[in-house]
């Protein structure tokens, strides 16, 4: 059974059809990319999966659990985490706090214990700090743990966003344009990095990207979206030579290949 099964998902904004009849079956451990020109509905698909929007039609299923209609926080606890196209860290909080907040649903103490700092509070907080610091050290951010997130350089902010997402213990990680604003050299490093977290954290990854170099380099399968419709899917080399894609996508942004 696939880990994530999306069937006939359609979404309207008012009268505008942002995503139409989108289907995807994601096997455990896969790394799949969604590409398409600006406004093709890629981020909308992420928002539908994570519950930010509620799909107008269709079903989204995570290993047997229907996700449509559930709240974003609930869906996250079920094992889906994501990053954002325009980084959305908790800017005025420390790096450590950013990661600690993502432990919200895992901390097993009650509000009463919060108010009085009794019971499991001490032990749980200790565990959360340790787990967060370990995660940060994996991402080489541990020495910055007391810095405010907004003071980090761009690349570190991107890494922190992924670290924060992983703190929720996801099975499936959604990366929204992880290579935005990076130069070719940094993209090479990012490719290595994505491969490595997939192995290390046992992840299934779905990513949206603009940068062909990254997509062609690491994705096992691709889906191409244009105006909300899936116009092609297949292996990277197939996509590269698909005349439909060349016409719809590359005709507009050929410069990027």
């Amino acid at each position: 059974m696939p880990l994530l099964q999306i069937d006939h998902v359609t979404h309207y904004f008012g009268g505008l059809c942002a995503v139409s009849d989108f289907n995807l079956a994601l096997e455990s451990g896969e790394l799949v990319g969604i590409i398409g020109p600006n406004g093709a509905g890629k981020t909308t698909i992420f928002n539908l999966i994570t519950g930010v929007y509620r799909a107008s039609k269709g079903s989204i299923n995570l290993s047997g659990t229907e996700l449509v209609g559930k709240s974003p926080s609930h869906i996250t606890t079920l094992g889906i985490a994501r990053t954002f196209q325009n980084i959305r860290l908790f800017k005025d909080l420390t790096v450590l706090d950013n990661v600690r907040i993502a432990h919200y649903s895992q901390a097993s103490y009650t509000p009463w214990e919060s108010l009085l700092h009794v019971g499991r509070y001490q032990a749980e907080e200790k565990r959360i700090i340790e787990h967060s610091m370990e995660l940060l050290s994996v991402f080489k951010l541990d020495h910055l743990s007391d810095e405010l997130a907004k003071n980090l350089p761009y690349g570190s902010q991107r890494r922190l966003e992924i670290a924060r997402a992983l703190a929720t213990h996801p099975q499936l990680l959604l990366l929204d344009e992880p290579a935005a604003g990076m130069n070719p050299n940094e993209i090479m490093q990012l490719m290595e990095f994505i491969r490595w977290i997939r192995e290390d954290f046992n992840l299934t990854i779905l990513l949206i990207e603009h940068q062909m170099r990254l997509v062609m380099g690491i994705c096992e399968r691709l889906k191409v979206l244009d105006f909300g419709k899936t116009i092609a899917e297949g292996l990277p080399w197939e996509i590269q030579n698909n005349p439909l894609v060349l016409e719809a996508y590359l005709g507009e942004e050929g410069g990027e290949l």
Partner: peptide
């Protein structure tokens, strides 16, 4: 800081 991001980081905002 960011209500949507906090929801997506498993915080039960309600």
């Amino acid at each position: 800081e960011d209500e949507i991001a906090s929801d997506l980081m498993s915080v039960n905002t309600r």
